[in-house]
Nucleic acid binder design. Sequence first.
DNA 1: CAGTATCCCAAGCGATACTG
DNA 2: CAGTATCGCTTGGGATACTG
Lengths: 163, 163
Amino acid sequence: MARAMEVIGDRWTILVLREAYYGVTRFDEFEYYVGVAPNILSNRLKKLVDAGIMKRMPLQEHSGRYDYVLTEKGRDFFPAYLALKKWGDDWLAEPEGPQVVFRDRKAGRAITYPKLLNASGKPLRLEDVEVIAGSGAVPFNRRRFGAAGEAVEAARPSRRERK
Amino acid sequence: MARAMEVIGDRWTILVLREAYYGVTRFDEFEYYVGVAPNILSNRLKKLVDAGIMKRMPLQEHSGRYDYVLTEKGRDFFPAYLALKKWGDDWLAEPEGPQVVFRDRKAGRAITYPKLLNASGKPLRLEDVEVIAGSGAVPFNRRRFGAAGEAVEAARPSRRERK
DNA sequence: CAGTATCCCAAGCGATACTG
DNA sequence: CAGTATCGCTTGGGATACTG
């Protein structure tokens, strides 16, 4: 998560990504639709390319023009984007409703994220969830889980000891 | 989206939220697990409370101690958090795998986000998706959609005209 | 413990000018 | 058009000291 936010967790990157999902590919289109200064945009596109989320495709030979297109990694972020958008639409939107809707081209219906369901087929509540250690859990003093995933009372140093 | 990112889109807030999903409620626990300076944490918790994502509950009368607990709005963000985490686990994680897994308490199985499916029941691809205007679409020069949702060639001013 | 206040510094932003 | 370079300026961060 920390890593994910490092990549997409700033005000501009997510908006660039949004435009990409809307079909935008060109520098000046991003610049216009996102409403960002060119230096910032340049920086963000570079970061997205470095992160493997977009790639920079020469438009023609020697035209000096490029398309910025999503990679698989970038397209694979779409569900997360959609989940974020749904939450925003549900809790933060203007009363008129969302400005943009994604529609399934074939079905002709809006795409919404399916509800998470618990084992009984009811909407999943946070109370249905338990947190366990994953395979990459680290054996240092920050952990809160034993080898089997059970909660462990961490040795939690005071602010002072922590340095 | 812009609004959503304004609320949760910084390096610390999402980590605070993560700890909340892990069951953390107390100031010093957040401070320790997130590894953040107390002034920053204070600020973020305040923002989360203001945004209606968490509430501050007095622990006892006059103890001067509080629990920070998720509101429904905050709990409703969990799917988005999970989608983000999944993307991060899939694309950015260490080879050992994720450090933490959410498990369905009853089913005893890890919760993962269901795949988005298109109208034919296959995994949804970005190509299956079209972008249309939502009910809140605004009739100003930034729009790219006609009244019926079809794409419209926007009058895109040059950088200069844009000011 | 549960924060708040202060200080200093670095990073990022917006505007704009410039280049091929 | 498609960027890069430069420049003040503000915001936010880390460290730490302080208070009830």
